[in-house]
Design a protein around this nucleic acid. Structure first.
Lengths: 344, 344
DNA sequence: TACAAAAGTGGTACCGGTTCCACTCGGTCC
DNA sequence: GGACCGAGTGGAACCGGTACCACTTTTGTA
């Protein structure tokens, strides 16, 4: 087991001082005679020298690393987000430390502490909603925070990148209303989350615009983890006047909701028209292919990273920024016009 | 923007030397009087002191970090693997730096260099198959490498965790043979990968045991990325004597293969019996639900991390270890007995 | 009571970079 | 010819921990 060469090894081999080598490594930090630069670069190549990140971080006080804090990589939405963030980061020479919270504020707090130890320059996160003081502390210590997908209302001055949640929910709802549906179920994340609230809001707006009163029983804001989606489906179907349309407005709940629908033998779209939030490669392989709101995950990733890196390099004006990207509605075969079967 | 406290701040506030504080932090490194320990711990709490990882790494020479190098987090298999690895690592107080290769050896090489800069203590990877010298160099520099899912035959003395690839493919094939199928297509990863070869081997073995000769035209080892699966499906169906059974033996190819099958209107299982490798939550929501080989991803993650951490802490005997875990066959409704329709 | 061993403590070199400062050159300008 | 400049260079402090060593104070045992 050999030992990796250090900057002093390089300096010695090139017959110069460490200062010169350092200046070759960071060209902005000072002049080097062209001949010596060549010489040093050659030695670096020969020795296979690479600067140790830890040493650099220690003296710089912060790392060229960003933390990515998501709920759960088993959720394709977060997985794809992580994929893009890692990819974009790489092309900027930045590494990503991934942490998962499983939607648990305690784990989130732990993750943030760990990231702090690592002196990360920034954090991209889908916050659980708790840990308000912790996020503030992070920011006070100079860590650039960007919330993606969700946000925390109590926390001002934080950059946010999300989709137009309310608008997307409104459009999905309008689509079902236009097909004649008046009893539309909504399954979404807890009302304690920004996305949950926004999507309920959009759903309500569509109803108001069409002068339909919303039956509160049709709106289910359920926890992300576990079988929240399945249970919500169960109780919606058990209603005396069960819905003819359903919007599953959170990626984490789509699988369990659809599974339950399949289990109980609901025919889609004959018995129930369904629209789900977040398109992933499998939604078009289900039976029938599901109409979906497609979140531009790439855009979310690109903008988040752009913001974090921009802040880290101090090339962004002060003041929090909010970026909302548009989500597309992708019609497939899971929605049908309402046919009044018995009554009317 | 405040400045985080250092060990010297703590020492000063507690009226002791930095050595004492360091010993409180690392109990094994020396004794501390109980009273002073209390005192120091209180000050640490008050100040919210946390040791900087970079400083620790610099002096230790290696980091409490492992690199995870996978092809692509958009693939549910890798995503879930990453999820479990991150989770397990967290519970051991270790952070994970994730890198993706997109199956490109150049990107892989770049990733390895970056991880080296970070002085990671270990790397868990699904290698592309290239970069043999690079992997060796990594090992020579004291980085503990564990290959998961795949391996590189040319590289000895590397720990490997994988499923019983050959055996799993054999069982899937036998299942179809038992249903009367004799012309069974196989779509799998490139024969340059260990998994590709092993799965082809298992497929062959099942045929030999049943005294069926394998038509080489039925075996398609195609690239992971792009629409390799779809194209393979297309050409298999275009054969004059097209297969009545199909095994898609690689997660990365399942989606595109199934999509193509749906597109061209093949009826499953009436026209074609299908078995796919890797069960993910969506495979039972397709039409029909797909019979699958379920890889115990949790086990892969746990064992990989166990190996890496064990090596990092030097509590594992020398000599490479190979762990193979069993994969289950999950029968669903995508396989049917062969009914000789026209001939015979 | 004597003396060795163990417990407890502080000082400081070191890990491998970055950065500031002082210094030496040539060349330019008055 | 002396003052002044900028390019080019090396020395050394510093970032925040760890670990070794020397030292003092207990404690235990013969």
């Amino acid at each position: 087991m050999k030992k990796a060469p250090t900057i002093r090894d390089v300096a010695a081999a090139a017959g110069v001082s460490v200062s010169v080598v350092s200046r070759v490594l960071n060209p902005e930090s000072g002049p080097v005679a062209p001949a010596k630069r060549e010489q040093v670069l050659r030695v670096i190549g020969d020795l296979g020298y690479r600067p140790r990140a830890a040493a650099r971080e220690l003296s710089a006080g912060h790392a060229l690393t960003v933390g990515l804090v998501v709920a759960d990589l088993a959720n394709p939405f977060f997985a794809q987000l992580a994929d893009r963030v890692v990819w974009e980061a790489r092309s900027h020479g930045v590494q990503v430390v991934v942490m998962t919270t499983q939607e648990d504020p305690h784990l989130e707090a732990e993750s943030l502490d760990t990231l702090l130890d690592r002196s990360v320059g920034g954090v991209i996160a889908t916050p659980t909603g708790g840990n308000i003081e912790k996020w503030e502390r992070l920011r006070d210590l100079g860590v650039n925070v960007v919330f993606v997908d969700r946000t925390i209302a109590e926390l001002e001055d934080v950059d946010v990148v999300s989709i137009e949640n309310s608008d997307s929910a409104r459009r999905a709802t309008e689509h079902l209303i236009a097909l004649g549906h008046t009893r539309i179920g909504l399954i979404t994340g807890p009302a304690s989350t920004s996305t949950g609230r926004a999507r309920i809001h959009g759903y309500r707006t569509a109803h108001e615009n069409a002068s339909i009163t919303v039956d509160p029983m049709l709106v289910r804001d359920v926890p992300f983890r576990g079988d929240g989606g399945g249970d919500a489906v169960g109780s919606l179907l058990a209603l005396p006047d069960s819905p003819t349309g359903l919007i599953v407005a959170n990626t984490a709940q789509v699988q369990s909701s659809v599974r339950r629908l399949v289990q109980v033998g609901v025919r889609i779209p004959d018995d129930l028209s369904v629209i789900v939030f977040d398109d992933n490669p499998w939604t078009e392989l289900t039976n029938p292919p599901l109409s979906a709101i497609r979140q531009p995950i790439d855009m979310l990733a690109v903008h988040s990273l752009e913001l974090v890196l921009g802040r880290m390099q101090g090339r962004l004006p002060a003041g929090a920024r909010t970026i909302e990207v548009k989500a597309d509605f992708v019609p497939r075969n899971s929605c049908a016009p309402l046919i009044r079967s018995v009554a009317s």
